[in-house]
């Protein structure tokens, strides 16, 4: 168990920075790989077509002009000033370029519909990260609440909640997620997040409960209570900061787990819906053409490995070399 009483290690900060960097990369993917230019002029007026594909702020750049004009090849009166480094969209089907090996035009080659693999791998970051983070946040929230209720209330509630956690922990998360997605009529990022969180809150609940019980008798606790703090207030103001470094570690491992689950779900066709790319989905689509092309198998795998490996490494550093288990197999 990670030693939560020794905060100040750089690990949790590094985990947060890595997650932030990955999120930023995923969010900015439309500026890195896009068949629309970043900056162009249409009869003298400057437009930012690639920015229109950004999440949240995109709608603001999606003007009529951007929607109507052809960009590839540029329509009449269009001057392209700046293209993204990878000038392909993740869904730009090109049947003349089917299964091209990695080369100068397509750095990582193309898939069986002629889509640029690099663009797809880059855009695959977004659903994976979004679902990974969302599911983990949900699991931490639910697990934290359950653990806090059990730890603070004690008694029958504690017994019931922890028994429930034990029961849910018996189910393999993937089995639970598959059943939930099918049962709820499939579809949607939120459903996938909930499905993943469903099997992943129990660890957090146990951890939070144990921490509360550990601190409940401490001087810190007594002082805060004597000063008139209510139970939830003491837990939130005085205990939560103590748990933060450990929670960062749990979160980093949690995101790695959630990404594996998401890509596994996509791989069996119950996750992200095409044409949106998820690394699992790209690999599922690579399977039928496996004997003709190796690149659609290799590169998404490398992307997964890179992200998951980095997450695990950072999380483990943060957990310290206490020699004890800080994780479960992915």
């Amino acid at each position: 168990m990670p030693d939560s009483s020794a905060p100040g290690a750089r690990g949790p900060g590094a985990a947060a920075a890595l997650l932030l960097a990955l999120m930023l990369f995923g969010a900015l993917a439309p500026l890195i790989a896009n068949d629309r230019p970043i900056l162009a002029t249409v009869s003298g007026r400057a437009v930012w077509p690639a920015l229109a594909d950004l999440p949240i702020v995109g709608a603001w750049f999606e003007t009529d002009l951007v929607r109507q004009v052809a960009w590839d090849p540029p329509g009449p009166g269009v001057r392209v000033l700046l293209r993204p480094p990878v000038p392909y969209s993740y869904r730009g089907v090109d049947l003349d370029e089917v299964l091209r090996p990695p080369g100068r035009r397509h750095l990582l080659g193309t898939d069986s519909l002629g889509r640029d693999l690099l663009a797809r791998v880059i855009h695959g970051t977004r659903p994976s990260l979004l679902i990974g983070l969302g599911a983990t946040a949900l699991a931490l929230l639910v697990g934290g609440l359950v653990g806090a209720c059990a730890g603070l209330r004690g008694g029958l509630l504690d017994v019931v909640l922890m028994r429930l956690a034990d029961i849910v922990a018996c189910f393999p998360p993937l089995v639970l997620a598959l059943a939930f997605i099918t049962a709820s009529g499939r579809g949607g990022v939120t459903v996938i997040m909930a499905a993943i969180a469903l099997g992943r809150w129990t660890g957090t609940a146990r951890f939070v409960r144990a921490e509360i019980l550990r601190h409940a008798g401490s001087d810190l606790w007594a002082a805060a209570r004597a000063a008139g703090g209510s139970l939830p207030r003491v837990a939130l103001r005085h205990l939560a900061p103590l748990m933060l470094p450990s929670v960062a570690v749990i979160a980093a491992f949690g995101v790695a787990h959630a990404i594996v689950l998401e890509s596994s779900l996509s791989f069996v066709g119950l996750g992200v819906a095409p044409p949106d790319p998820s690394w699992g989905l790209i690999l599922a689509e690579a399977r039928p053409a496996m004997d003709a092309a190796w690149w659609p198998v290799l590169f998404p795998t490398l992307a997964l490995l890179l992200v998951l490996g980095a997450l695990c490494l950072v999380a483990e550093r943060a957990a310290g070399r206490s020699g004890a288990r800080a994780s479960t197999p992915l």
Binding site: A256, V260, S263, S264, F267, G280, L283, A284, A286, R287, M290, D291, W294, V297, L298, P300, T301, L304, L305, L308, G309, L311, C312, L313, P329, L330
Partner: peptide, 22 residues
């Protein structure tokens, strides 16, 4: 670390690609 971080479906495809197809 690499093996730990490798999801099983990706491992499956890599193994199949290497040992069965190639």
């Amino acid at each position: 670390l690499v093996l730990y971080a490798l999801p099983s479906f990706a491992a499956a495809l890599l193994l199949q690609e290497t040992f069965a197809v190639r």
